[in-house]
Write a protein that binds this DNA or RNA. Structure first.
Length: 872
RNA sequence: GGGGGAUUAGCUCAGUUGGCUAGAGCGUUUGACUGGCAGUCAAAAGGUCAUCGGUUCGAUUCCGAUAUUCUCCA
């Protein structure tokens, strides 16, 4: 069976057991502050488990794209060195939401593995939870009894809380789990060591492939467990491992999931997989990371310099680094692998094919920029090596290596590699110490103290009513206090709310809640795990009461103008630039709108103008809003609605139509486009390879913009006495100015020349040295400098002192011919410092030329006499 | 969100205790050699040293703020 068949078989199997098959959620997580990426199959159902949303279907199965690179599951540094860790992987899973429980979950798992996939029974082991006294949970005898039907006692192992009790977090849903392990060692090895001794011991060929979690408890903030009324099943099976087992391979990377890409890497590198351990590791790293990066990009997460984008960048750089070090790649190469990946996985994940060009471009750009980073790092390292060797050291200071890494992004392992060639090492302890200090700094800066939720009541409500109302009666169901570095605030959850929570690029609403004349301001509204959370600086006096919630209508309607304009812009972009345009991000707030989209060249001024004109045309057409809620997703697609990659949609969606613009959107919009008034594009630029950004304003802001521009224009025009051709007048003035500036420069030169000639007549020879000490009337010290250098060029054997009073201060310049420096041991710097005493000043410079300033210009004549005396 | 760095000619970058009337390479323009191209040689143009403020006799250099950008950590 190839990997495609294995995946499909899983889905077909659970479909036959009445499961709804859903698509994978995006790998990039939105609206969950605790998680950047989907790291398990259950993530997309988290809000169901938490009780925030109802389950539309009690039985679900899917394959989920997951990424484990940060937080609890951080496998990044392992990947490639062994044969079974991955950053991105697929997790096959089936779920029951208050429907079937342990019996069905275990029976079906067994049926699928043994009867369908034909995995030999004697390779399988299972584990069950042994119980925990502290939590008061007994051994999972139910699971034990179910497994006993299929396996002898010595293949059912008891596991502790760490391995066999699953928890979502410090609090929340949890329960015992039962894992299925498989032993794929050779018969010889099995004879030597019993497989049951290797389960959960980190052996690469005795591995867990499926985890069945039975969610039957809720852990309260106090740590106590309470039995859940509705019990759930959550399972996860590693797809790549399953393929390895079924295809009888010893490594995930030997399966067809990875081999096509690895073959291509080998071809590009001119090396064969399996010939050299280090090269093999590099190929595995690259094959793995390629998938992670490509899927992240298609899900809308571009590499960037912070947060999730930075994680993606780091993964890509790790791949480049391994290619650079072990496969001798010096030019971008990873982007050349995308095509093979798309061929291999595009069937199951069509977004890879659709966005292939973007993925290639983004990766190439990133590779280029990292190779540049490496180049500058190598240059810096060269000078470090040089100085270390000059000082006869054999070890490079760890802080220096850390600076190279921290500030310039040059990885430590590369530093060490290059140093080793020069027989140098890095002081690792110093490096680690500096690293630890940096981590502590970051941690203490981001510390957020989140208190427990305080449940006030469980008032029934309608959830979000803000599409139809901007004011409604609400009750506060629960709240908690959050303490950050910049003060503390409260998070409030209502039974019903007119406040729109930040989502889909539209900022959250602000406003007030009021009870008996006491108003509390809501300064922002955000979403957390599908829960609308209102942020307030203070807690209302009687939190249990019935409040009147009012959205700040002014900001809301400005935001709506911009949001609708964004849809019109999207539509216009497709008309003018082509239908390849896809949204890559957007920001909509009361002030302006920002729209990012894929396009591979600069949008020309002409195109921009046409886009702007088209949007304004659509505004004047005054298209009425056609809003449809609860549209089945298939029907929405038939309507031609534009969906976004990387956005998670439910079965039912909301469709917003304005004329021919049709989009899936949860945001708030104007009633008809005429309200927007006017649309002006402020800028167009690139934010990353293949992604452009347009910033624009509408309505009042656009009006103000035009007004100030017109006012400025009017003022400028009146400065020119309102000419018919203002542009011509300005150009003419500019030309005249240039001419005058040139003339002035020539005049000044001539003047300086004249001055210089006059000065030449004043030269007196004292003891064979040409001396000139004069006070000049100039208003700019640059002229003195210029004259000094000119005189030096014309007259040898010269000791020159020029002085002037500029802005009430004395300005002294001393110039000495080169020959005198050596012959007479004269030094302009020392001389000028000494002379400056006469004007109560100080100065300095080089031996042949120095300047000084002083606060008492009256002393200049004395100063000049003193200068003369130096020669006598 | 926090730390560190960078911003100098069209591009890539030098500029080490504050004073070298701000430099290099590539590119551009002009001239010479050549039948033409390529090329070689010669010369020139091109900079408010990111912006604003401070310290100083004097700031590209030191200090502070802002903007942009790179990088590491969370």
């Amino acid at each position: 069976m190839n990997s495609r068949q294995i995946r499909q078989t899983f889905l077909d199997f659970f479909a036959s057991k009445d499961h709804a098959i859903v698509t994978s959620a995006p790998m990039v997580v939105k609206n969950d502050p605790t998680l950047m990426f989907t790291n398990a199959g259950m993530n997309q159902f988290k809000d169901i488990f938490l009780g925030n949303s109802p389950a539309n279907n009690p039985r679900i199965a899917d394959t989920q794209k997951c990424l484990r690179v940060s937080g609890k599951h951080n496998d990044l540094e392992e990947v490639g060195h062994d044969t079974y860790h991955h950053t991105m992987f697929e997790m096959l899973g089936n779920w029951s939401f208050g429907n079937y429980f342990k019996k069905e979950a275990i029976d079906w798992a067994w049926e699928l593995l043994v009867d369908v996939y034909k995995i030999p029974v004697d390779k399988l082991y299972v584990t069950i939870f042994e119980g925990d006294e502290k939590d008061g949970v007994p051994m999972d005898l139910e699971a034990h009894a179910l497994w006993s039907k299929y396996l002898p006692e010595d293949r059912i192992l008891k596991g502790n809380k760490k391995d066999n009790f699953w928890e979502m977090g410090d609090s929340g849903p949890c329960g015992p789990c039962s894992e299925i392990h498989v032993d794929i060692r050779s018969e010889d090895e099995k004879a030597m060591v019993n497989g049951r001794d290797l389960v959960n011991e980190g052996h690469p060929q005795v591995i867990e492939i499926w985890n069945l979690v039975f969610i039957q408890f809720n852990r309260k903030a106090s740590g106590q467990l309470e039995e859940l009324p509705a019990k759930h099943v959550d399972t996860g099976m590693g797809f790549e491992r399953l393929c390895m087992v079924i295809q009888n391979k010893q490594s995930n990377y030997d399966t067809d999931v990875f081999q096509s890409v690895i073959t291509q890497i080998g071809y590009l590198a001119g090396k064969k997989y399996g010939a050299d351990e280090k090269a093999d590791i590099a190929m595995r790293v690259i094959a793995d990371h390629l998938r992670a990066i490509s899927f992240a990009i298609t899900d809308g997460q571009l590499p960037s310099n912070n947060k999730a984008g930075y994680v993606i960048r780091r993964i890509l750089r790790r791949a480049v680094r391994y290619g650079y070090t072990f496969l001798d790649f010096r030019k971008p190469f990873i982007h050349q692998l995308v095509q093979v990946l798309a061929q291999n996985m595009g069937g199951a994940f069509p977004e890879l094919i659709r966005q292939q060009e973007l993925v290639v471009n983004v990766i190439r750009e990133e590779e280029d920029s990292f190779l540049r980073t490496l180049e500058t790092g190598i240059k810096m390292l060269d000078t470090i090596i040089e100085t270390t060797k000059k000082n006869l050291g054999s070890e490079v200071n760890g802080n220096v290596a850390f600076e190279l890494y921290d500030t310039f992004g040059f990885p430590l392992d590369l530093t060490e590699l290059i140093l080793r060639e020069q027989e140098l090492t890095v002081n690792r302890d110093e490096f680690e110490l500096a690293m630890e200090a940096q981590k502590n700094r970051s941690r203490s800066a981001t510390q957020l103290e989140t208190g427990d939720w305080i449940e006030l009541q469980q008032a029934e409500g309608e959830g979000f009513v803000g599409y139809d109302n901007v004011e409604s009666k609400i009750k506060i169901n629960r709240y908690r206090k959050v303490k950050g570095k910049k003060g503390e605030f409260y998070q409030l959850v209502f039974n019903t709310t007119p406040f729109y929570a930040e989502s889909g690029g539209q900022v959250g609403d602000s406003g007030t809640i009021e009870l008996n004349g006491n108003k509390v301001e809501i300064f922002d509204t955000v979403k957390e795990n599908n829960l609308t959370v209102h942020l307030a600086k203070i807690l209302p006096a009687n939190p249990e009461g019935l409040f009147t919630a009012r959205v700040n209508i002014h900001n809301r309607s400005l935001t709506e103008n911009n949001h609708t304009a964004t849809h019109l812009l999207d539509h216009a972009l497709r008309e003018v630039l082509g239908t390849h345009i896809e949204q890559k991000g957007s920001l909509v707030n009361p002030d302006s709108l920002r729209f990012d989209f894929n396009h591979f060249q600069k949008v020309t001024d002409d195109e921009l103008l046409r886009i702007q004109e088209r949007v304004n045309q659509l505004i004047r057409a005054n298209e009425k809003k056609d809003e449809r809620r609860e549209v089945p997703i298939a029907e929405a697609e038939k309507m031609g609605a534009i969906a976004l990659f990387g956005e998670k949609y439910g079965d039912k969606v909301r469709v917003i139509k304005f004329g021919d613009s049709v989009e899936l959107c949860g945001g708030t919009h104007v009633e008809s486009t005429g309200t927007i008034g006017q649309f002006i594009i402020l800028s167009e630029g690139s934010i990353s390879a293949g992604v452009r950004r347009i910033e624009a304003i509408t309505a009042v802001k656009a009006e103000q913009y035009v007004e100030t521009r017109l006012k400025t224009l009017k003022e400028v025009s009146s400065l020119f006495n309102n000419p018919a051709d203002l542009k011509g007048a300005v150009e003419e003035l500019f030309l005249k100015f240039q001419l005058l500036a040139k003339q002035a420069e020539a005049f000044e030169k001539e003047n300086a020349g004249k001055l210089k000639r006059e000065l030449l007549n004043q030269v007196e020879t004292i003891n064979g040295i040409n001396f000139l000490g004069q006070q000049l009337k100039v208003d700019n010290s640059a002229i003195l400098k210029d004259i000094a250098f000119q005189l030096k060029g014309e007259l040898g054997n010269l000791f020159l002192v020029l002085a002037a009073e500029i802005d009430g201060k004395a300005n002294i310049h001393v110039m000495i011919s080169d020959n005198l420096l050596a012959e007479k041991g004269m030094n302009a710097g020392a001389i000028v410092r000494e002379l400056a005493k006469s004007v109560n000043g100080s100065g300095g410079g080089q031996p042949f030329y120095a300047t000084a300033g002083g606060k008492e210009p009256a002393g200049i004549p004395v100063l000049l006499q003193n200068a003369r005396k130096l020669l006598i």
